[in-house]
Simulated scan of single mutants.
Amino acid sequence: MYNIISVHDFPIIKDQDWIQLYPSYKEKLHSRIRKFFDILANSQSVLFVRWGAVSIPQAAELGSVLASITPGKCNILFLDPVAGLPSVKELDWGIDGTCTVQVPS
């Protein structure tokens, strides 16, 4: 549904279906999510880093959503890999708390 791939959480065990390990994976995932939200709730400043750019409207929407769950200062760094780019290039999207940088891929 969310296009999430988990390649490290389900070991291949002979004669055992991966689904048998799902309950422990689900608990581990919920624990990580709770810890993540706890860190957000208790941080004065948070930097989110995303590999791969989005559109300007998507970046603004993501910034708004993240700011709504982050009581402290919230910043986002978008790293946009570009083939053949000779050096780092900053893009000014005019969104407070957001920096987009094209980087060589």
Rank of each mutant, 00 (worst) to 15 (best):
N3Y: 09
V103L: 02
T100I: 15
D17S: 12
G72Q: 02
N3Q: 11
F36K: 09
M1Q: 09
H30Q: 12
R34C: 10
Q102D: 03
S105M: 11
P57W: 05
E90L: 12
I69R: 00
D80I: 03
V88W: 11
L66T: 05
I39D: 09
C74T: 05
V46N: 02
R34I: 12
S24Q: 15
L29T: 13
Q44N: 15
I69V: 15
S31M: 09
P86N: 09
Q58W: 07
R50D: 04
P11T: 01
I5R: 12
L91F: 00
V101C: 06
Q44C: 11
A60T: 09
D15P: 01
D9P: 02
I39P: 02
C74H: 03
P11S: 08
A60F: 00
I76W: 03
I12H: 11
R32A: 12
Q44F: 10
L21H: 12
S68W: 00
Q44E: 12
I19S: 13
K73Q: 13
D96E: 14
S68K: 05
S87Y: 11
P11L: 07
V101L: 12
A41L: 10
Q16H: 09
L21T: 12
E61P: 02
S45P: 04
T100N: 00
G63L: 11
F78Y: 15
